[in-house]
Design a binder for these strands. Structure first.
Lengths: 217, 217
DNA sequence: ACGTCTGGATAGTGGCACTATCCAAGCATG
DNA sequence: CATGCTTGGATAGTGCCACTATCCAGACGT
């Protein structure tokens, strides 16, 4: 198919597709001549994944390129490639300006370490990207007057464990390795809004329950 | 305290504070004279909350203004004010361009309704902001080739229920109503990165467990 | 009284995801 | 084979948005 058809079938404008090609988010099509190129289903799927990462996941173009490169990297083991999304996709980046103080960060690190220990998770997680993100966030929270220790984090960690189980269960429905890797990236990103929306609904529900449900708002 | 001190104690530049004053995110200080104004602890706390919403939560300035106005609104009931964060803070907005088709949205709505029924939650949630966000996200997921029915969503809803319980438990630690309202907004936003970071750690952990832990990456 | 600081107004910056415009080379139709 | 539309590629521009830099006149401090 040509650019125009790729655009029509994906709902992404040709200008944007050209942009993604330029940025290396989408591999170039098969060249038919000096000014013609042909795209196939793999381009369509990749394009959908790109849109998912950028638009739904809100991750920057440069990062998306890295993630996709890792997805395509043949040298990685399956576990590595499944972990790419987890490792490489950035968190919503807590605190850009009022960077937490060194003490806050150190304290946060201690508490996260304590949490890992109580969960029986390897201490190596502490230096992984999501581990660092957690430390930064906990430090930021402390700076804002909401200190969290391992005790307070534990219920959330238990919740996260069950979310991860659900994630992995879903992944197992995909058979081919390609699909699994892609789904791992897509679902890691795309389930975030699902989970957060559900949490807010559950908050409203729980609040109504505890305050005696005053006609539930 | 003066602007400079407010800036020093909050770590936010005077220019940015002026910007927030202009935008109505921060109430003006007590005027001492034509060119002098004084700020107090409430300004400091509000400023921290503003930073939390905008910087950590990534919500737009205009929305932050609405949320804060609702927080300050004396006419709302306690439950309403606690719900402000849940209701008014926008979700990461799925799908800006390739808007889901009408069929996808209708199907998503049906599945979310089925989910609410199975959970025993009021159907009114379907039209609440987080409910709508959920429908949009599920529709977007379907469009990307990851259809979700009530069955698949249920485990995530169970997870969300427990997260909400943890949230409300934490809120009860705050005594004054003011603190509770503010903490409700702050924690709704600030716990999102915590939860997401923990989910990624848990994914890595669960993946290692299922694939036989190859020295855990 | 004089240099510094203050708050307010206005315009500018930087980052980033696109998007509009050109252009020369196909392709398709009469 | 002429002609008009389309294609992919290159380049520069747009729009949004959260700041940020600059001015300015009026306090304030010593």
């Amino acid at each position: 198919m040509r650019l125009a058809e790729l655009s029509a079938r994906s709902g992404v404008s040709t200008a944007t597709i050209k942009f993604y090609l330029r940025e290396g988010l989408l591999p170039p099509g098969r060249r038919l001549s000096a000014t013609q190129a042909e795209y196939d289903e793999t381009h369509l799927r990749r394009l959908r994944l790109v849109r998912a990462l950028i638009q739904v996941g809100g991750i920057p173009v440069a990062t998306a390129r890295e993630v996709l490169a890792a997805v395509d990297d043949e040298h990685l083991t399956r576990h590595d490639r499944l972990g790419v999304a987890v490792w490489a996709i950035p968190q919503p980046a807590p605190a850009r300006t009022r960077e937490a103080t060194a003490e806050e960060t150190a304290a946060a690190r201690t508490q996260v370490a304590a949490l890992l220990q109580r969960l029986g998770w390897p201490m190596a997680h502490l230096d992984s990207p999501p581990g660092q993100a957690l430390v930064r966030t906990v430090a930021a929270l402390a700076g804002l007057g909401y200190p969290h220790d391992a005790e307070r984090l534990l219920p959330y960690a238990r919740v996260a464990e069950r979310a991860a189980e659900a994630d992995l269960d879903l992944l197992e429905h995909f058979t081919s390795e390609e699909e699994q890797v892609e789904a791992s990236v897509a679902l890691t990103v795309l389930h975030e809004p699902v989970l957060l929306a559900l949490r807010r609904l559950a908050q409203a529900e729980e609040s109504a329950r505890r305050t005696g449900r005053p006609e539930d708002r």
